[in-house]
Amino acid sequence: MKKISLIKKFEILKREFHEISNSIIQPHIVSNQKKYKTLLKKYRKLEEIVNIYEKYKKKLTALQEANSILKNDSDPEMKEIAYLEKNKILKDLSDFEKKSDDLLFSTSPTTEKENLEDDHRNAIVELRSGTGGNEACLFVEDILRMYIMYFKQAGWKYKIIHAQKGGIQGYKEIILDVSGKEGVYGNLKFESGVHRVQRIPKTESQGRVHTSAITVAVLPEIKDIEMKIHLSDIKKDTFRSSGSGGQHVNKTESAVRLTHLPTKITVECQEERSQHKNFEKAMNVLRSRIYQNEKEKRFKERSIKRKSLVSTGDRSVKIRTYNYPKGRVTDHRIHKSIYNLVGFMNGNIQEMINFLKLSEKNQ
């Protein structure tokens, strides 16, 4: 069963290889340098796998020949040679099959696209308050400040797409569009999950440590040419902005709410004075959410043994704790603590991200 399953997977990759072989010689592909480079990178990777597959099939053929000799040949010397050869082939096949899950995972076209192309994309970052009431809203603001300082260190730009203020201070929700030369999503993807804070709130008169939590979701930014959404699948609502912007935004219905009917995904945007601009920004977020939703479904359907730190996209998982009394930040996925919480909250988070990258690479 193992061999049959492997052959099926390799055949899928082989078909993909031949499809790309035909595509990269087409004039409209060659003229599109970005598309051509992406396909060429995938072609070279698949070429390597197809070559390995051919060697694997030769081993299987040799095994059949050895079995045939052992069954039908009457020459004892030939049988002994076939017996030794069979044992060697079985060992080679066993070693190969033990490595096959990792090999096929790391080279499947879908995973190749997600792990390589997505890492170089810009990102949509969504912060939402969770348990803890006003303290959670304040922590959203603190984490927002942390990320903004990190963006400045990295030389990235950001724009606020949507913001909902907290009851007293901070934010209930804020969504950012983050862009840079490269590696934006590849670095920020590790931030997806529940961030827990342990500290004494400013409103706490007894000096007791409280625990609050917020949720961070990082999505790869998907362009319009990559994902077409039918307008007939979208319900558009407009309303008056409740955010900043003066009298203009409060007197006109410039804020936009989009609902993608097939998936029930809803996006709001009210940061621009123009309804048209808010619609464009909301569509940008909607594309990213739909893409991420499909990506998460594929990961769940595969049931691959080797799971990435971010592969499940489960935003309910507690990933990190910020302990203010002890001046410590701990990432629970890799059991790594950094005893410089002040520096971390001032945007010095690359060290933790590098540890996460290394851990994912070594899985």
Rank of each mutant, 00 (worst) to 15 (best):
Y322V: 06
K71D: 04
E294M: 11
S241W: 01
R121Q: 11
K3V: 10
H248D: 07
E85M: 05
L103W: 08
S316V: 13
S232P: 15
M345E: 07
Q275S: 00
T111R: 15
H248V: 08
K264E: 10
N51D: 00
Q247T: 11
T330L: 11
T211R: 03
V256M: 07
M227V: 08
P27V: 00
S241Q: 00
G132Q: 07
L46R: 01
I334C: 11
Q275K: 00
T312F: 15
V216A: 05
Q292M: 15
L356S: 04
G155S: 02
R240I: 05
G186T: 12
Y56C: 03
T38P: 10
S316H: 14
Q198G: 10
K91S: 04
L127K: 00
T321E: 08
R257K: 11
H18F: 11
V125M: 10
V197C: 00
A136K: 09
Q270W: 02
L286H: 10
A123L: 07
A255K: 03
L116N: 15
K336P: 04
K297H: 12
V218W: 09
F344P: 02
V249M: 00
Y158G: 02
V342G: 09
N134K: 07
E117P: 10
Q270I: 01
D224M: 15
K251F: 06
A82W: 02
F299R: 14
V209G: 11
S359G: 06
H332L: 12
M78T: 00
N22Y: 07
V285N: 01
R240L: 00
T131F: 04
R121D: 05
A163G: 04
P262F: 14
Q206K: 13
L286N: 06
L116E: 14
I161Y: 00
R196P: 12
